[in-house]
Each structure stands twice: as C-alpha cells, then as structure tokens.
Amino acid sequence: MKADLGAARPGKPQLPRPRGHLSDTVISWLRIGEGPLPTREEVQREGPYGADLQLALYVLYELHYQGFDGVDDDREWAPAPLSVRRYLEEAFLRALRADVPALGAQEALAGLLIEPADDSSSVSHYVKREGRLWQLREYAALRSLYHLKEADPHAWVLPRLRGRAKAGMAAIEFDEFGAGRAEDIHAQLFADLMADLALETAYGHYVDVAPAETLAIVNLMSLLGLHRSLRGALVGHFAAVEVTSSPGSRRLAEAMRRTGAGPAAERFYDEHVEADAVHEQIVRREVIDGLLKDEPDLEPDVAFGIGATTLLEDRLATYLLAAWREERSALPAPLPHVRTRKPARSVT
C-alpha cells in the first residue's frame, strides 16, 4: 500500500510522554524554553540504558531531525539543553565503552559475516519460522523510529570523510535516498510497509510505546552521526547494519509473505536483500578500508561502532523474544489498526 507521507503527517511530531525525572524536565524545558534542567549528577544516578535517560536523549536528538510541534526550531542550538545532551551522551557512551567487547575491526566484522548455526536469539529467524502478523506489526512500529528516517543519521558523516570513504558512503546514501526518485526513498518504502500493516505512518508516532532498547539503538546512530570525533564508530556501526541486513531482510520478507502482510511490506525487505548485498561490499571495501588507510588510528573506533551496534541489537532481540515466546505483546498495549487512504484490509 502506498502511504502519502505528506498527507499522513498533519504537522510536526508531538512531544512524547515523559518517563521519569530526566525526560520530564527536558520535555518541559523544550515546551516553554526555560526552567530547570537535569544536572550531571542527576543524569549519572539514572540507568544509562533506561527508558528515562534514553527518552531524554531521543527528544534532544530529534531537534536535529524533524523537531516537535510547539517547539521553536531555534531551540536545537540552545546552550542549556545542549549541555544536558552532553551529560546524557557521557553516561550512554561510558556504559557502551564498558560493555562492548574489545575486538579488532576485522575480527568484529568477520563475526558478522558468518551465519550462525544457533539462531535461537535472532528475531528475524523467529519471525520467519513462527512470527504472527501482530508480532510483525509490533516489530514494524518499533523499527519505524529509525526506518522513517532511514540513512539520515549516517548522512552527517559525509563532510568528515575523504576520498574512497566519502565516495563509497555517498553512493550508498544516494541509493538509500531513492537514487533521485522520491517514491524509492527507503523511508518511503517503510511507510508503505506500515500502511500495509495498518499502522500509523506519521514520523515518530510510536515513540510513546517504544521500549528503552529501541530508543537506545536510534540514539546510538544519532550520537555517532553528530560527533565528528566518533566518525570511525559511525562507519563501523553502518557496516554492522549493512552486513547483517541482507540475510535478515530475506527472513523478514519471508515472514511478511507467509503472513500475507501485503506487497509493500514484502517489497521493503526484498529491496533490502539485494541492495544491502551491494552496500555491504561497498562499505567494507571502500568506506572502512578507505577510512582506515586515511586514518589508521580510527581502527578501535570502527570496532567500537560494530560492537556497540551488536550489543544494542542483541538487547532488543532478547526483550522482544522474551515477550513473544510467552504470547505477550512487547508493547504496553496492543496496537490499534489505522485506516489509511485505501480501505484497510482485514488484519488479525
């Protein structure tokens, strides 16, 4: 089903509901442009992977993408919330640096290039074998926080690269952004998938139901994309996504076909099977190799980006599979079915 992103989005996204002290004060500040904000000590007392800290960070990062309804665009560069963003990032980065295993970049990549025989902890293997339509709808709703801005966080790295790394990265991003055709932008293909699944296609709509594990994955991309000092990690993260995407997308496409999700739902993942088999080659051969020839000192950062991505994806997979294997929704409440411009098909 084709989703009209323009028509589906009445305006900018709404500010989400707070999930604790940090997100509450940040959201209140953004709404009125003044007031108290969390101190560094308050940030350090919260769990770095927890929903409150991750939501506060997500909201501050969104100022650099689409912003929020009722929030002055200029607050993107207001010094006070930028200071808080720094505290939140310090806490998140410290936790990741402590938890990501120390591997070389090639070693970390090689691990991703082998298809594991034990696939019991993989969401895509699970949904391919036994996933139900309601689980695929939940999966798409959670992934929409990224896929509706697919490839956006990675575009920030372009001015920080040179030569082969820049040319390779720009070529992949061109493909992600539809190669000059708006209807083929991957974010648009995902909105079409969401319409097939009777989901709301508005940007950022599902943030209120997203668990901390989902917010952390999206925040990692923004963190690495916005900091030039983390350009090596951004490239490593991007490689990890592209290397794992093609076989995972094959399984998701089969799950969409088996459950009768719809042609646009199948197309999104079919496209990623073929596209990411190419992107994986370019990102490894041109982007990573080009960057490390240019700046060999970034090798540990590339490895960190790969490891951090794997760590956070594994956390989300554990969360989702724990709920689904018990026949429980992974969300606070089952998702309502949204009628799009075409009459919604019967979905169960």
């Binding site: 061109f174 073929e274 190419v278």
Partner: peptide, 27 residues
C-alpha cells in the same frame, strides 16, 4: 539500475543473478 550491482558467482542466491549473501560461511 543500482549504482553498483553484485552478481552472484556461487549460484546459491535465491535472487539470482543478484547476490543475496548466500555465499557466506555458516558456523
């Protein structure tokens, strides 16, 4: 029409002639 295309050489691809990473080793 992609900027670069990956053509399957192992003949295992289910998207033949395009690569679908089926050439990868399995643990």
């Amino acid at each position: 029409r992609r900027f670069t295309v990956a053509i399957c050489m192992c003949r295992r691809s289910r998207s033949y002639p395009w690569c679908d990473t089926s050439h990868r080793n399995r643990s």
